[in-house]
Design a protein around this nucleic acid. Structure first.
Lengths: 131, 131
DNA sequence: ACAACAAACGTAATAACATTACATAGAGGT
DNA sequence: ACCTCTATGTAATGTTATTACGTTTGTTGT
């Protein structure tokens, strides 16, 4: 479950995301890794799929991008709903966790009989530096 | 600001979404409207852009789709944060509004100096019928 | 060591979603 | 009539993601 048992491709993709610390699209990752021998989108998407499964990487649905989890290891998903504040000016993205929001959404959806599987909370705006 | 001053293309797209009452992709709308003379994606995207501006249609970012606003008219965006619960089995999508969640997110982001512009809350899962 | 199986990989092609560029048409104001 | 702004039509292209197919690698049981 640790980063050491990643395959070569997975490690390369994960490193690219960690180095960036701003969200990257799959194709941006592909371009970064051409020097390492990457040649096709699928190499990136396959690695991303595994990394997301492990909780090492998050997908930002509203910007078609990926970002390394702000928490080392895969413990991330246990501290409440995960949300992101994405600066549209500089790309800087803040991951946050919020139990209150999680509980309120659960309560609301529970009433309606809706069973959540994946919750997306993404706020686009301007970060403190760019505002 | 009412639906009557929509152009022909905008009306057709809006009707398609209202009839569906499940989210539609831009290309699905295009296919529905070929009988009305639509020939290119841009005709749909241009209409959608205006409809979203007016608050008559929402874009669901996590599924690349669009849905008619559940509230007639454009008053929708005044009653708190807008969220969606999207059933991955039947496509049925419930629009909801939640002041509590809105305030908690505002508080959290305010602390960090982040200025929200667009907030995405989309929960995918199973609706009461499909669970 | 070897067969059998599963997971990961390489490559090509294609599908799905969205935008740019450029030319044309219609409505409203002067 | 002329200008301007908005909407439109059409084509081409750009961006994001998946399917299909075959090969390689790694693991397990014998």
């Amino acid at each position: 479950m640790k980063t050491q048992d990643l395959t070569r491709n997975q490690s390369l993709v994960f490193s690219a995301l960690n180095d960036a610390k701003t969200p990257l699209t799959a194709y941006a990752i592909l371009d970064e890794l051409r020097g390492e021998g990457f040649r096709a989108p699928l190499q990136v998407y396959r690695a991303l799929e595994k990394l997301v499964e492990r909780g090492l990487v998050h997908r930002l649905e509203s910007v078609n991008s990926f970002i390394a989890c702000a928490h080392e290891g895969a413990s991330c998903c246990k501290h409440g709903l995960t949300g992101f504040a994405i600066c549209t000016a500089c790309g800087n993205t803040m991951e946050f966790h919020h139990h209150g929001v999680e509980h309120q959404l659960e309560a609301l959806l529970g009433e309606k009989g809706f069973k959540p599987e994946k919750t997306v909370v993404e706020i686009r705006g301007l970060c403190a530096n760019c505002a």
